[in-house]
């Protein structure tokens, strides 16, 4: 079953903006899905090491009909790839709902504010504000780290541009960028007791949705959500909990060791070690986690990160059943309905 209400307004060009609904901040489909109360799925596209636009579209097509939004990472892990803005611009032309990730590592406030206007002009409707990984962990450790902002002051900046229609300098904008504002959370790293306070700060700074670091510990997720609910944060902000797809016990151990902030309980690693087909087991774990997370009161969706296993996203989403038969919009739907109309 498709949610027709969300597609019918699309213009001839799939990249045309949708009207902003009452109470909404953006033209975007992702905000519509969340505010309509649907359980949403977002995922990540790995920007190519290439100037080939076709490669971006091929990678995005793997998610068609399975996800509501696609995060375009911004030099993730401090490694150089095609820019988030470039990827997003290619995706909006096709009508996709990309989320532009903006990290504070590489650009100062002049560059970032300019990029936010540019992104909105290119049809980007959602932004994820991140501090970013340090340059020392990436492939250009000799680069100068910028960090003019942190994720919270970046949120404040987007809010200033959007709601006050001005630059930080005070100079007025003729047309503000209508961006649905997001941030990241990590309930699975110290200081555990204060992670919800940190979330509260991001909500206070303007976050309307958050996506989390990998969740492999359902109990911690439950506890975090209960505390967020008690603080009333879920009334202002949608939470999409992060789910990862592990390829093997070796990958799991590497992630746990090499990526600070990733918490993988030993029982998950044991399951992968004992499995006859570790890859299939990794997908089964993801499916189970998605189902368990969807049961948690107040959860708005899943942020599915299937790095190098993107072709399995559709299968994992379908098996989890968390969309309850809802089929997210994809460019092919539009082409299909146009053909039917012409026939």
């Amino acid at each position: 079953m498709t949610d027709r209400a969300q597609f019918d307004e699309a213009g001839l060009n799939p990249g045309d903006p949708l009207p902003i609904l009452p109470g909404h901040v953006s033209h975007g489909r992702f905000e519509r899905v969340l505010r309509a109360g649907h359980f949403a799925i977002s995922t990540e596209i790995a920007p190519p090491d290439s100037a080939d636009p076709g490669e971006v579209l091929r990678r995005a097509a793997l998610f068609d009909g399975h996800v509501d939004a696609i995060n375009a990472t911004d030099g993730s892990g401090a490694n150089c790839h095609m820019s988030s803005l470039g990827v997003c611009a290619l995706l909006t032309r096709e009508g996709y709902s990309p989320i532009i990730q903006v990290s504070c590592r590489d650009r100062n406030r002049i560059a970032i504010q300019g990029d936010l206007l540019g992104a909105a002009a290119l049809g980007v409707c959602s932004v994820l504000c991140l501090s970013g990984d340090d340059v020392s962990v990436g492939d250009h450790p000799e680069a100068k780290p910028v960090f003019d902002f942190d994720s919270v002051s970046l949120l404040q900046t987007v809010k200033t541009l959007r709601d006050e229609s001005r630059f930080l300098s005070g100079r007025k904008l003729d047309l503000p960028p209508q961006l649905f504002m997001g941030a990241s959370i990590n309930p699975f790293a110290p200081p555990y007791a204060n992670r919800v306070d940190q979330f509260a700060k991001k909500v206070a700074a303007g976050a309307e949705f958050v996506q989390s670091q990998y969740c492999f510990d359902i109990e911690m997720a439950r506890e975090f959500m209960a505390r967020a609910r008690d603080l009333g944060l879920l009334e202002h902000c949608h939470v999409l909990m992060g789910v990862g797809v592990l390829a093997s016990a070796k990958t799991a151990k590497w992630l746990k060791g090499a990526i600070p902030g990733v918490h993988i309980p030993d029982q998950i690693i044991r399951r992968l070690e004992q499995a006859e087909k570790p890859k299939a087991e990794g997908r089964a774990i993801a499916v189970e986690l998605m189902q368990q997370l969807a049961e948690i009161k107040g959860m708005s969706g899943i942020h599915l990160m299937a790095y190098k296993q993107e072709e399995w996203v559709g299968d994992i989403v379908a098996r989890s059943g968390v969309l309850q038969g809802r089929k997210p919009w994809a460019p092919s739907h539009l082409h299909h309905s146009k053909q039917t109309a012409n026939a």
Binding site: S136, D150, S184, N186, A189, P190, P260, G261
Partner: peptide
């Protein structure tokens, strides 16, 4: 903080509460 974060911590704090960039240092925000 190596990222000079003014509203921390970031998401990369190690399990022992130390910094992801400088493992020998306790996270400034912890």
């Amino acid at each position: 903080c190596p990222k000079t974060i003014r509203n921390g911590p970031c998401g990369g704090v190690r399990e022992n509460g130390h910094c992801e960039v400088k493992p020998e240092m306790r996270c400034v925000w912890v």
